[in-house]
Simulated scan of single mutants.
Amino acid sequence: MPAPRNPFKHAIAKGDLQLGCWLGLADPYIAEISAGAGFDWLLIDGEHAPNDLRSIVAQLQVLAARDSHAVVRPPIGETWIIKQLLDAGAQTLLIPMVESAAQAKDLVDAVTYPPHGVRGVGSALARASDFAAIGDYLTTARDEICLLAQVENQKGMVALDDILKVDGIDGVFIGPSDLAADMGFIGQAGASGVKTAVLGAIEKIVASGKAAGILTLDQDLQTSCRKLGATFIATEIDVTLFARNMRKASSDGRKLLLTEQSAV
């Protein structure tokens, strides 16, 4: 029996839109609610959210029962943590701060078993192989692993052409917030120069034949990226969505009740 099919990987390879949401609340209950919302993929964030390996595993277990595909972002693209996340059952990884083709090649090696890569062989202990129930896991796992490189600073943008030539990278994700900061526009991801750079990168990624992705709450930018052919687009973040609506609920309730009190 081969490794489970990765629907996200095959969808972006065909150019089918995959709509996503960021999960930063680091809780399986929230992940379960989000998985029932209709998103094609949900990003479990280990870089800027308070996740560790066990909390990531708990969310992977919840998402496995739903149709939303789990993408995991580690805090850094090191071989040791990539190995742990793959063994835990993650099939799609988004690696932050990719800045060179050499780094991208190292990432490909990290998700590939020897003799072609350096991923440690411990699948008998792993959730990824259904604890050794998937007999052909070692020989089929790589075909279903989706490796996404996140380019999010000027160094990475300069190296983008070379990164796109690396075999084994399935897609490149542009990070507007970090890019904006590196360009001198910290907190201003919507600055015109940043948007121009982002759209230029998306266009270049699509032209290379690899999948292009982005996270942005800017609906105009979402639409522009999609028109250029971006295939995996995250349009919301659970943290900001929850915070925004909680604040609104508090404000609306206070206004209503204060108005009622004044009328008495």
Rank of each mutant, 00 (worst) to 15 (best):
E144W: 09
D161A: 15
A149S: 11
R127Q: 11
V151H: 01
D130K: 09
L125K: 09
D162V: 06
L164Q: 03
E152F: 09
E144Q: 12
I163D: 13
L147P: 08
L125N: 12
L164W: 07
A124I: 10
F131S: 09
S129L: 04
S123M: 14
D161C: 14
A133F: 00
R127E: 10
D162N: 10
F131Q: 08
A128V: 07
Q154C: 02
G135R: 11
M157F: 15
C146G: 04
S123D: 10
A132T: 03
Q150F: 10
A132W: 08
L138H: 02
D136A: 09
R142M: 05
L148F: 09
L138F: 03
L160G: 14
Q154M: 15
S123A: 15
G135C: 00
V158K: 15
Q154R: 15
T140H: 04
V151Q: 02
V151W: 03
A149E: 08
A124Y: 07
I134D: 12
G156N: 15
A133M: 08
V158Q: 15
C146T: 01
M157E: 08
E144G: 00
A128L: 08
R142I: 04
I163T: 06
E152P: 15
Q150H: 10
L147H: 03
T140A: 11
R127N: 08
Q154T: 05
S129Y: 01
A133Y: 00
D130A: 04
A128F: 02
S129C: 06
A132H: 05
G156E: 10
Q150N: 03
L147K: 02
T140W: 04
D161H: 12
Q154K: 10
T139C: 08
Q154S: 15
D143V: 01
E152R: 11
Q154E: 11
Q154G: 11
I145W: 04
